[in-house]
């Protein structure tokens, strides 16, 4: 058995999707860990933007909230919230939006609003925040989420942020500027959209994970790539840097 956790595998795989020099809009939590790991390894010139208006930020520890002082103190500059949404996101100056969510469906639509009926919800989630604009205006979005049947559903209860809607060319026909979700990275594998139908299929499976395990944790009839790849194991270097980052973060948030 390999000596890394599923979460570490997911974070490192997600980090590897971020290219050096990309301008990246970062969501809090899993996306934030992946983006900062990328910055500390192969993508030192990645520009990380958080919706609090912190531009080109290089936090030493992961922020607990999206507006932590650490983000402002290590940013090249800080702008207002209207500017970040208007001049940066809406105007198309962001290459990649890195998102998470509570629920995602086979067409990559994300729900972070309610489980159940909107007016009589079973669970009230925090809501949209900046996600709808990230999902629609970033040139592409990358999604990182833990795989489970509850989270990976056939159809989301509420479309907070658009993926490919009902699939095919619907997104494009509506005139949404960004290309949409390019990839979903989970703790079990990597999912990609079919070029025609836009339904997400399993492109790559992480080491020591079985296809049955992925299927059991997916709420739709998951299609498998004809030539299913195995995701490369994380390197000792990346594991070390990620663990240091998590340790520093835990220490900083404990007091």
């Amino acid at each position: 058995m390999a000596d890394y956790t599923k979460d570490e595998m997911m974070t490192i795989t997600a980090a590897n999707k971020l290219k050096d020099g990309m301008v990246c809009f970062v969501g809090i939590g899993l996306p934030s860990a992946a983006c900062n790991l990328a910055r500390l390894t192969h993508a030192p010139n990645a520009v990380l933007i958080y919706e609090s208006g912190t531009i080109e930020t290089k936090p030493d520890v992961l922020p607990l909230s999206i507006g932590d002082g650490e983000l402002a103190e290590t940013a090249s500059h800080v702008i207002s919230v209207p500017e970040v949404f208007k001049y940066w996101l809406q105007a198309g100056k962001v290459d990649a939006g890195f998102l998470g969510g509570a629920q995602i469906d086979k067409f990559g639509n994300i729900n972070s609003t309610v489980i159940g009926d909107y007016n009589n919800p079973k669970v009230r989630l925090p809501g949209a925040g900046g996600a709808p604009e990230i999902a629609s205006n970033a040139k592409q979005t990358l999604v990182v989420m833990r795989h489970s049947k509850r989270a990976f559903v056939d159809k989301v209860d509420f479309i907070t942020s658009t993926g490919y809607l009902n699939g095919g060319s619907e997104r494009e026909e509506l005139g949404i500027k960004g290309e949409g979700p390019a990839v979903i990275i989970t703790d079990l594998g990597i999912l990609k959209p079919d070029p025609e139908t836009k339904e997400f299929y399993l492109e790559s499976i992480h080491p020591d994970v079985t296809v049955d395990e992925v299927r059991e944790n997916t709420g739709w009839e998951l299609k498998i790539a004809e030539e299913l790849e195995t995701t490369p194991e994380p390197s000792a270097e990346y594991l070390g840097i990620l663990r240091d980052l998590n340790e520093r973060t835990a220490l900083a948030h404990s007091g």
């Binding site: 609003t113 949209a128 709808p132 629609s136 479309i159 942020s161 509506l174 949404i176």
Partner: peptide, 8 residues
């Protein structure tokens, strides 16, 4: 622009 296609 961002509301296109959303349930919000």
């Amino acid at each position: 622009r961002g509301y296109t296609g959303t349930d919000l």
